[in-house]
Design a protein around this nucleic acid. Structure first.
Lengths: 232, 232
DNA sequence: ACCTGAACACCGTTCAAGT
DNA sequence: ACCTGAACACCGTTCAAGT
């Protein structure tokens, strides 16, 4: 066995609780663990310990680990949406919204995995709703609103799940390093023949600005959406 | 406990093996289980049983369960790429390629989860390379090739991970039913006030053609890419 | 070298029992 | 009603032992 989890953690609440446990306290504790120690560190045992309680108490308030994760992801998404900028031109607003969501995922990469863990995720509804309302402001023709909003959501989900993967793989290493390692692989001698495109873009993979790249993709979609679906 | 896995399965190889075990045989057996019984059914025990061997034999050929899944996903992606249509106009070719990949994911939805399980996934390199080569054929200006290819890959990953989620949630139920259930939720009385966009597009969620919707998103991206990045 | 399968260190979840 | 924590049914992985 290589694993050696140190369950007892310093700080916070190892004392007996004084206030009653609530669903929202459980979710907050889960977010704290997810942010500071990553997806894999969130076990029912670690959560029970952080809350100074037993496993059963958690199940009394929230029915499953999936429910905790779904609630945690919804909380992060709703916080992000709440601080979205407002009142500019429709396309500027949608860019700003997408960047706000990107920043939230960059800060809480585990959300990216959770968004696509189960269908009908509450966080996904919030995401879709907010993006959809902004698409409406673009005056996209009726039958294309759904398609346009879905395309933006799907693109965001793709980026988000890659962030989650990188965070899972090496939290302390950092994305920069992970991308550099992949780029080094793509630079390999034999790759030039077998994977010429990857080989020739390896440098960009290692050095590009990820936020800029993200918004460039959003812009591709926005151009496509506005030039294709605007009513005549 | 509610779980009651029936490990002994009918048919196939419950006899002793006659030929030696190989990595590719393990991967093929894994694909069979993943396709027929879903992600959750692929345990080392189930795989060992299907191959009429012990757990250790599998670890002798492939170092971890993640390695098996990565190899299985790469196999599916490479098979899909191998049968991609060729020789039309660049933008027609890239649409055909994306549809081929979409169909592969529709048929093997677990691939969608695997693509974003770890960074540096071999399947992802193949995906990126093939899409990138097609972007090159579009004569996209140098500095934007990487951005354009990444946008297409990210969009595909977003769609793919949603397919994986639906398959995980209810394999026998079917996507159609899962989407209908979500749509029913969005149609709820109180949703009209809190989530007007979702409410007003619920019908489309339940009844839209998913393949058509997918390619519409690809078209948004292609229009954006070609009108934004073509050299003057 | 290749394989076997019991054993190990975990998981999420349940449930009798306490307050 | 709310909570406790031991117990249950799993996991992925290892490793001494066999061929």
């Amino acid at each position: 066995m290589e694993r050696m989890h140190e369950v007892p953690r310093r700080g916070a609440s190892r004392q007996h609780r004084t206030e009653a446990l609530t669903a929202s306290k459980i979710v907050d504790a889960a977010i704290t663990i997810l942010d500071s120690e990553g997806e894999e560190a969130l076990t029912t045992r670690a959560l029970a310990h952080a809350l100074a309680t037993g496993a059963g108490a958690i199940y009394h308030h929230l029915g499953s680990k999936q429910a905790i994760l779904a609630a945690a992801a919804a909380e992060i998404v709703m916080r992000a949406i709440a601080r979205k900028p407002e009142g500019g031109a429709p396309d500027a607003d949608i860019r700003a919204l997408m960047l706000t969501l990107f920043d939230a995922i960059d800060e809480h990469p585990w959300v990216g995995a959770q968004l696509t863990d189960q269908p009908g995720q509450p966080a996904l509804l919030e995401l879709y709703e907010c993006i959809g309302e902004h698409v409406d402001a673009l005056h996209v023709a009726r039958p294309s609103r759904f398609t346009a909003a879905s395309a933006l959501v799907n693109y965001l989900l793709g980026v988000a799940s890659q962030y989650a993967a990188a965070a899972r793989y090496g939290r302390q290493v950092g994305r920069k390093r992970i991308l550099a390692d992949i780029a080094a692989d793509w630079c390999g001698q034999q790759r030039a023949a077998t994977h010429p495109f990857a080989h020739s873009t390896a440098l960009e993979l290692a050095e590009h600005d990820e936020r800029e790249q993200f918004i460039a993709g959003v812009d591709f979609l926005l151009v496509g959406i506005t030039t294709t679906t605007r009513p005549a």
